[in-house]
Design a protein around this nucleic acid. Structure first.
Lengths: 242, 242
DNA sequence: CGTTCATTTGAGCCGACTCAAAATGGGTGG
DNA sequence: CCACCCATTTTGAGTCGGCTCAAATGAACG
């Protein structure tokens, strides 16, 4: 009695309405012509195989990239050669926003599965920012939100134990999937235990043990990378409060 | 033979040239009249006593605030009532940038000592953003930089032990003081051990023990909140590499 | 069907936490 | 100026969670 194989995250593709660029594409209160002008400089539907680099650390940030389908991990390597995983990118989410800091990407973003993305060249973006107030606001909003999430997650890591972190990770992932209209209680993890561990400041063994513990207590089914959440409330409670 | 009392961070006040708003105030390539217009809507030199709130969680973000002198801590409270300290704000640094996410501040910022700050109302800011390309770029840069720093710090917390974190904290503080032209090897900590601990995901006892260990090994002098760094390289190495 | 990588599980150890008490420092009022 | 009080900081002892090292199991792919 285990979780059955379900379509990978890659199989689903958000519509423009659910895209993080939604309010940019539709450009708030823009007249139709302006919205069209925007889509003209937007390169859509580019594809990458699993394991390919969407963004490379140190490269000039010459475009704003948003994942359209599939998933990726944002990561970098410390001076000692240890990998830190900053986060996982789901469809509709922008990539490499921290590149606005220096105009250069400061981390790698790697596809975890076959992936599609949209690309908005910076040159065109800056010109549009000048004309479109909604775009300006949306960009600031995205950055502010990313900053808030990063700080909040860091707080979590500081105060919670291993099981809470894993629960928090699952709850967050589930919630983000739900927001995209994807199945949120039964899904396939596109990242390895090692990736999860490096994201949560744990070892892969500890992540595995936590998942096994959840399974043993009947809160979820885990079989390899297939997950089925049986007690969402319990996970959410573990993740956010204890 | 201990560190002598030195002026608190509060005693120093950055000039506009060292301010994070520098490129905003001078507004890049702005004609003089525009720079003057900017300073007109900028409220400078407001003051707060130690312990007062510079920003309150949940409050509407109606201005962009930059600390001018003194220092503050950015913090919030988890659901369980545990305090998490997101960071410490030094002169010249902006405050509450994550408020751009929802238009509402998502953390408290509290003065650690008597403090002065500048305040740029959002209404005026938005109008200026429309007109001044340099201001737009600077704002995105600040947000991107903050995001990058937050992610980088989170990575540190994930992989390093207690002593490395404390060393990293001291090295970072020292570097930021130096950038402001303040003494960077001998200074007074404006925050408590508890604040440092909650910032680094440790307990206050562990922070104290780490500082004592550094003292014992001759890397720095610590006496209450007065710190004198004797071996900057060692601290930096501990913080960034081990 | 075999190879290879990812994941699970076990045993033992170490560092950071918890609980507790002593010491230090800063500030206040007499 | 001094004595006192309070909060902060330091130090100690013991426990436990997560890490390390190691081996077995399971899954994926050609």
């Amino acid at each position: 009695m285990t979780a059955k194989s379900v379509p990978a995250i890659a199989a689903a593709c958000v519509s423009c309405r659910q895209c993080a660029l939604h309010s940019i594409c539709l450009a708030g209160h823009l007249p139709l012509e302006e919205a069209r002008a925007l889509e003209l400089s937007l390169e859509r539907g580019r594809a990458l195989p699993a394991g390919a680099a969407l963004v490379r650390c140190g490269a000039l940030m010459d475009a704003l990239i948003v994942v359209r389908s599939g998933s990726a991990k944002s990561h970098s390597v410390t001076l000692e050669g240890l990998e830190q995983v900053h986060g996982f990118v789901l469809p509709g989410e922008p990539v490499g926003l921290e590149g606005f800091g220096a105009g250069v990407y400061t981390c790698d973003v790697t596809a975890l599965e076959p992936l599609e993305y949209c690309r908005m060249p910076m040159r065109g973006l800056e010109a549009l920012i000048e004309r479109l107030p909604g775009l300006r606001r949306e960009l600031l909003r995205l950055l502010g939100q990313a900053l808030d999430e990063s700080q909040r997650l860091r707080g979590q890591l500081g105060v919670s134990d291993a099981r809470s972190r894993v629960a928090c990770f699952l709850a967050d992932l589930s919630q983000r999937l739900a927001r995209r209209g994807l199945p949120s209680t039964e899904f396939r993890l596109s990242m390895s235990r090692r990736d999860i561990a490096h994201h949560l400041g744990l070892t892969l063994e500890t992540v595995s043990r936590s998942l096994s513990a959840f399974k043993r207590e009947g809160w979820l089914q885990v079989r390899a990378r297939n997950v089925k959440v049986l007690r969402p409330q319990v996970l959410a409670a573990l993740g956010s409060s204890i």
